[in-house]
């Protein structure tokens, strides 16, 4: 597997992806690739992308997240976007951004609860 862009944690058959770095376009795309590879390698059923450290999410990043979730779904995997900061959430809503195909949660606990309760 290629060099990891972000460190990830496997929990049960879920993958936790904490994003702590500044997201430029190349990084976002690299994270996408890394996630998909890990889903395959580690038989992941659900991914939790933790963005609690991100203070700016623009339309491109939102779009890429939706895209990632759609790709993961095709590999049989659900996605939870965890920890969007309140101000970031308001900005996204006021811009009119619609992030599709993703579940939202405030913390890791809820994220896992959500993934656990999805019957596939």
């Amino acid at each position: 597997m290629k060099q990891k862009v972000v460190p990830t944690i496997k929990l049960y058959d879920y993958l936790i992806v904490p994003v702590q770095i500044e997201l430029d376009d190349t990084t976002v795309e690299a994270i996408q690739r890394q996630i998909l590879e890990e889903i395959e390698d580690k038989q992941i059923r659900g991914i939790i992308i933790d963005v609690s450290m991100i203070d700016i999410i623009d339309s491109y990043i939102s779009y890429t997240l939706s895209e990632t979730a759609a790709m993961a779904r095709m590999m049989g995997c659900h996605t939870v976007l965890c920890g969007i900061q309140p101000h970031v959430a308001l900005t996204l809503a006021q811009m009119g951004v619609n992030i599709k195909g993703i579940h939202f949660a405030m913390d890791l606990e809820s994220s896992i609860e959500i993934l656990n309760s999805i019957k596939d």
Binding site: C82, L90, A93, Q94, I99, F104, A105, M106
Partner: peptide
């Protein structure tokens, strides 16, 4: 409406 959408982004 925007407020509702924002709240939902927080998983609520």
């Amino acid at each position: 409406l925007e407020m509702v959408n924002a709240v939902r982004l927080l998983g609520c």
